[in-house]
């Protein structure tokens, strides 16, 4: 773009905006290391006399964060694996195999993309309850995968469509099955699409609140966002616990993001634009 020489004025102008946008994080981090008495003095610019790391130990134990983190990991892993298992083959069939009613099937499968999850919550709860899946991580995984399938299929199909048909023809002539073509040829060359699907479904699952709120009732099966809201409600008057618990709940994903920043950004952007 033009005006490449204007790097530093623009960067300097952005700094105060960045300070404002990130102020909530800074305030939380500092407050989470204060004693209850220091928080009570209500001065956000005051540095804690002694860094109270104890707050984190207390919040971790009282809030049962070990269990919450474990549940969240299981939840994310389940959704990511099932998303790939359901969406990659379907995306392949809908882009590379001709069969009657293909268009119709495609539109039926992506129709759900327009329906907000809150709009189907009553029967969804009934279905989960009928299958004995309320209060289970398996139930939440299935509901979240179903909610993600339209996007996942759309994404995989639009990526697979751009793979030349000749590749399929050549492999068919060599006697490969469609399933082999998918796993041996299409998936290995589709890393960007697979990464996008993994990143987008992992992030939205890790952060999901609505479905866990409905499905995960007892504390021992809950995931981090729901667990934190319950914790913050129970210990609302103990600010030091609420603050340190909040930091615990967003720290893992932020560290992961900073470590994988470039891939993460690419996957998210590509996925959003394609989807």
């Amino acid at each position: 773009m033009s005006m490449r020489n204007r790097e530093w004025p623009v960067a300097l102008a952005l700094v105060p905006v960045l300070v404002l946008v990130l102020a909530p994080f800074a305030w939380l981090l500092v407050s989470s290391l204060k004693s209850e008495a220091e928080i009570g003095r209500a001065d956000p610019f005051e540095w804690p006399a002694e860094l109270m790391w104890q707050n984190y130990l207390d919040a971790w134990q009282i809030g049962g964060f070990g269990e919450l983190v474990g549940n969240s990991f299981f939840n994310v892993a389940g959704v990511v694996i099932l998303m790939l298992v359901t969406c990659a083959p379907a995306g392949y069939a809908l882009s590379k195999i001709r069969f009657p009613g293909r268009e119709w099937m495609f539109y039926a499968l992506i129709f759900g993309m327009t329906i907000p999850i809150q709009a189907i919550v009553i029967p969804l709860y009934q279905v989960l309850s009928g299958l004995g899946l309320v209060n289970s991580l398996a139930g939440i995984v299935l509901a979240q995968v179903s909610n993600g399938i339209p996007f996942g299929i759309f994404l995989m199909r639009s990526f697979f469509t751009n793979v030349p048909d000749e590749l399929v023809e050549a492999a068919r002539i060599d006697g490969a099955s469609h399933f082999q073509i998918l796993t041996k040829i299409f998936l290995p060359i589709s890393t960007p699409a697979v990464m996008a699907l993994v990143i987008i479904s992992a992030l939205s699952t890790w952060n999901d609140f609505f479905l866990p709120l409905i499905v995960l009732i007892s504390p021992d099966v809950q995931t981090i966002p729901l667990g934190l809201v319950r914790f913050a409600g129970t210990y609302a008057s103990e600010y030091r616990l609420v603050f340190s618990g909040t930091v615990i709940s967003f720290l893992p994903i932020i560290l992961l993001y900073i470590l994988t920043q470039r891939r993460f950004t690419e996957g998210l952007t590509q996925g959003a634009i394609k989807g």
């Binding site: 069939a93 499968l109 009553i122 299935l142």
Partner: peptide, 24 residues
């Protein structure tokens, strides 16, 4: 083949999305 490749997606999506839309 196409049906079997789509079957997992259709099953999950049919039970947990399409059916609830109809019931709503």
């Amino acid at each position: 083949t196409a049906f079997w490749l789509m079957a997992p997606a259709i099953a999950v999506y049919g039970i947990f999305t399409l059916f609830p839309i109809a019931v709503t």
